[in-house]
Amino acid sequence: MLALQGLVAGYEPGLPIVRGASLQVADREILTLLGPNGAGKSTLVKAIAGLVPITAGQVHLSGRDITGLGAHRLARAGLGFVPQTENVFTTLSIAENLALAGFFLPSHHQRRRVAAMYALFPDLAERRHTDAGRLSGGQRQMLAIARALIPEPRVVMLDEPSAGLSPKLVQVVFQKLVEIRAQGVTLVIVEQNAKAALAIADRGIVLVEGAPRFVGPAQDLASNPEVARLYLGRRETA
């Protein structure tokens, strides 16, 4: 579904942050991307999303080469991205955020997708005329996810969807992600909260210094003591 070959990417020329990342994400898979702070997880998903320059390697989506396509083309090519922060337009209402997310769809199709998102996230439907800047952390994350889902992407990448949420809300968000996968969407989830992410993921990847260090089924990674000790973040080491 999504395939990377030897991807090299970074913010400044000659300073690669992602250093030769290769991986395959299967159709309808949930893959979680773990790793220590500064490993380059965010940079990797941003590079795939067209926001960080790629200097070598390739990205394929459903067999199509989308390397360097430009962020605004990727939404139409079937790739969704939910950044970690600033992932909704705070000066626009919920309804405006969702309308804008599907502006390139035929209008009947767009309306159907917005209705589908209100069905998936009833909280959003109730507050549709509220400015997104006034939503709580949980509602905001729901809106960010809904925004990415509007154009019916094949693959959605989420950067730390649980960041800043209470443990209860983390469970709610992750349950939604399981539902979304059940509807046929492939998910790539960057997480600090390794436990919660591995609980819903099929496979996990531990990224270290810009390249995958461990790749394997989620249960194997969760029970691998070396991975836990070294790379699964503070929760496990504390």
Binding site: A49, G50, L51, G70, A71, H72, R73, L74, A75, R76, F81, P83, E86, N87, V88, F89, T90, T91, L92, L100, A101, F103, F104, R147, A148, P151
Partner: peptide, 14 residues
């Protein structure tokens, strides 16, 4: 308005 607030997110939005 979206581009004024957040150009990167605007691009992601298509």
């Amino acid at each position: 308005r979206a581009t004024a607030e957040n150009p990167a997110l605007a691009q992601i939005t298509g």
